[in-house]
Deep mutational scan, measured.
Amino acid sequence: PQEEYKKRAKKALKKGDEDTAREALKRAGLSPDQAEEFIRRFL
Rank of each mutant, 00 (worst) to 15 (best):
K14F: 10
A12I: 02
L30P: 00
G29W: 02
E18Q: 13
L30T: 01
R8M: 15
K7W: 10
A21Q: 00
Q34T: 05
E37R: 07
D19F: 11
R22Q: 04
K15T: 11
I39H: 00
L25Q: 00
K26N: 08
E23T: 07
K26E: 09
Q2G: 09
A24C: 08
P1V: 14
K6T: 11
E18K: 13
L43F: 12
G16Y: 04
P1D: 14
A24F: 15
I39Y: 01
R40N: 08
K15G: 10
K14P: 01
E4T: 08
K7R: 12
K26Y: 12
S31V: 03
K11Y: 10
L43G: 09
R27Q: 14
D33K: 10
E18F: 15
Y5H: 08
K11N: 13
T20L: 09
E3I: 08
S31E: 07
A21I: 03
R27T: 08
E37Y: 06
L25W: 00
L25C: 01
L13M: 04
L43Y: 15
K26L: 13
R22P: 00
R40M: 08
L30A: 02
E3M: 08
E4Y: 15
E18R: 11
L30H: 03
A9S: 02
L25K: 00
K15E: 15
G29E: 03
K6Q: 09
K11R: 14
A9N: 01
A21K: 01
F38M: 04
D19K: 14
D33F: 09
R22M: 06
R27N: 12
A21C: 05
E18L: 15
R22C: 02
F42I: 08
L30S: 01
L30W: 06
R8F: 13
D19E: 13
L13H: 01
G16R: 05
K26D: 06
P1F: 14
R27M: 15
Y5L: 12
E36F: 05
T20Y: 07
D19H: 13
L13W: 03
R40C: 08
A21D: 00
L13V: 03
R8V: 14
E37K: 07
K14H: 10
K11W: 10
E3S: 09
R27L: 15
K10N: 07
L25G: 00
K6I: 15
R27V: 08
K14D: 09
F38H: 02
F38T: 02
A35S: 07
E23K: 09
L30M: 12
A28E: 02
K7P: 01
K10F: 13
A35V: 14
R27G: 08
T20S: 11
K15M: 14
L43T: 09
E18V: 15
T20A: 14
K14M: 15
D19L: 12
I39C: 04
A24H: 15
K7E: 15
A28F: 04
G16A: 04
R40E: 07
P1G: 13
I39M: 05
S31A: 08
L25E: 00
D19N: 12
G29V: 00
P32N: 11
P1Q: 14
G16N: 05
A12Y: 07
E4H: 11
K6E: 12
D19V: 13
D19Q: 13
E36V: 05
R22E: 01
R8D: 12
G16K: 05
K15H: 13
K26R: 13
L13F: 02
E36W: 04
T20W: 06
L13R: 01
R40Q: 11
G29K: 03
A24D: 10
K15Y: 10
A28S: 06
L25Y: 02
A21P: 00
A21W: 02
L30Q: 02
I39S: 01
R8E: 15
R8S: 10
A12V: 03
R27I: 09
E18D: 07
R8A: 15
R40L: 09
K11C: 13
A12L: 07
A35N: 01
R22N: 03
K10S: 08
K11S: 13
P32R: 09
T20G: 14
A21S: 02
K14R: 14
A21F: 02
E23Y: 05
A9L: 03
K10A: 13
L13I: 05
F38D: 01
P32E: 12
K7H: 08
R27A: 14
P32L: 11
G29H: 04
A24I: 15
L30R: 00
E4A: 12
G16T: 02
L30G: 00
Q2I: 13
F38W: 09
F42W: 11
S31K: 06
R40T: 08
L43P: 05
A12K: 02
E3V: 08
K10C: 08
F38A: 03
E23S: 07
A28Q: 02
D19A: 14
K7T: 10
K14N: 08
S31W: 04
L13A: 03
A24N: 13
D17I: 03
R27E: 12
R22Y: 05
I39P: 00
R22T: 03
P32I: 11
E3Q: 08
E23G: 05
K11V: 13
E18Y: 15
A9H: 02
K7Y: 08
A24S: 07
A9R: 01
G29C: 04
F38G: 00
K26W: 09
G16P: 01
E3T: 08
G29R: 02
S31T: 14
R22S: 02
T20V: 08
Y5V: 04
F42K: 02
A21V: 03
F42Q: 05
D33V: 11
T20M: 08
D33W: 11
E36M: 06
E3H: 10
E23V: 08
R41N: 13
E36S: 07
D33S: 12
E3D: 11
E37I: 07
Y5D: 06
A28R: 01
G16H: 05
L13Y: 02
A21H: 01
F38P: 00
L25F: 02
L43I: 09
K6D: 04
L25A: 01
F42L: 06
K6G: 04
A24E: 15
E36K: 05
E37M: 07
K7G: 05
